[in-house]
Design a protein around this nucleic acid. Structure first.
Length: 239
DNA sequence: GAGGAGATCGTCT
DNA sequence: GACGATCTCCTCT
């Protein structure tokens, strides 16, 4: 029998780490092109990975909804530094959210990761989310079929649909990950390109915010199960 | 399935 | 002291 898990780990290790230049562009372009890329967490010798299916661009000083809008503080300092670094913050007393810094130093631009589709290490992610993996994954089914096939689609969705959930699934915290370099393979948190391209990308207004809600700065992979919020039936744009 | 309310605590004013 | 780029649970339809 082919060891799918081993093949997957090898494929992840051969994916190209996104270079600094990728992030050295305006956040709208970065957000759109991040869809379909792999967010990879090194967990000891294993890799956990998810494909980005939803994100939002925040335009810094030009965007009232952005954390960088009111200037630099100790909390958001990473956004004001060079591109390609992780900005993690804690919110609502419960959740962490993950961003990556973009282009212009001193402006506070970035992209918020809102959802990913689990690709590798699904059991570990489900466990990190507090799901009862032993009962969900009896040995026989856990070893057969595609990754995560021991979970229903509704259960799978709960792993990483939403910024707080995906951070919990990958054990991302401010203490551990804020300021980490996404462009280094030696980092235990980085982004990579395995050549996958989403079929259709849709832009919608951002969600969960009160200011700057009109701009279509949220990008999703159309039809993907893991996109958070309500299902989109009428795309704002798809170019 | 949709909508509302509460939890919970770091950050900023 | 107020607010928040969220999530979960509960109720209602």
């Amino acid at each position: 029998m082919v060891n799918l898990s081993k093949e997957l780990q090898l494929a992840l290790r051969s994916a190209a780490v996104l270079p600094r230049e990728f992030y050295n562009r305006d956040p709208v372009t970065v957000a759109r092109e991040l869809l379909g890329k792999l967010l990879i967490r090194r967990d000891g010798r294993k890799l956990l990975a998810g494909r980005i299916v939803e994100d939002e661009a925040y335009l810094g000083a030009n965007d009232p909804a952005a954390h960088g809008y009111s200037g630099m503080t100790p909390r958001n300092a990473v956004l004001f530094g060079p591109p390609g670094y992780a900005y993690v913050y804690f919110i609502y007393g419960n959740h962490y959210c993950l961003n990556v810094s973009c282009m212009r130093r001193g402006v506070g631009e970035g992209v918020l990761f809102r959802a990913m589709e689990p690709v590798a290490g699904i059991e570990a992610m489900a466990e990190a989310r507090g799901m009862d993996v032993p009962t969900l994954a009896p040995k026989s089914s856990a070893r057969m079929g595609p990754p995560g096939s021991f979970l229903s689609s509704a259960q799978l969705r709960l792993i990483s649909s939403g910024p707080g959930r995906m951070c919990e699934a990958l054990d991302i915290t401010r203490e551990r990950d804020n300021g980490k370099d996404f462009t280094s393979r030696t980092s235990d948190l980085y982004l990579a390109d395995d050549g996958y391209r989403p079929e259709r990308i849709v832009a919608t207004p951002r969600i969960g915010i009160k200011k700057g809600v009109d701009e279509p700065l949220r990008f999703i992979v159309a039809g993907n199960l893991f996109v958070s919020g309500k299902r989109v039936t009428a795309p704002v744009s798809n170019d």
